[in-house]
Design a protein around this nucleic acid. Sequence first.
DNA 1: GCCAACGTTGGC
DNA 2: GCCAACGTTGGC
Length: 158
Amino acid sequence: MVRTNSEQYWLFKSEPDCYSIDDLAQAPQQTARWDGVRNFQARNFLRDQVAAGDRVFFYHSRCKIIGIVGTAIVSRASYTDPQQFDPQSPYFDAKSSAEAPRWFCVDITLTKKFAQTVTLDQIKQIQALDEMVLRKQGRLSIQPVTQREWQTINQLAT
DNA sequence: GCCAACGTTGGC
DNA sequence: GCCAACGTTGGC
């Protein structure tokens, strides 16, 4: 994938028991570090593609109401995830070093919490969303979204 | 909480 | 560099 000048769209997954959109809403400046990503494909997106100004769907997984719960904007482009160097952290990685860091993070800022979740059930029923990465690669926690998918889901949310 | 799918690790 | 074993994700 080639980086273009225009903003790009992403979907970030989180288990709400771990970190929910309400946690983001209550964070200082409604901004949080999106860290702890420990999957190489997701890491590559974070490190190489996600840019400041890109738009993000906030997705709740492994919970009662699964789906997209709101939107955020990338407020800081990728930097090394400090938790990989902290032996106390669950995200510590002994194989990583300052010279060759393995893991990256970005900051996101809340832009909108949807009045109602756009549920996975809904997404599955809409033909325009058949090609979403979400539908094809269930386990990828950072994934690209097309402009058409972005618009379709935003329309559903209003 | 189960378990299928799939990513990662490590012995060979 | 293959692939079995293992660990994790995430919908149900």
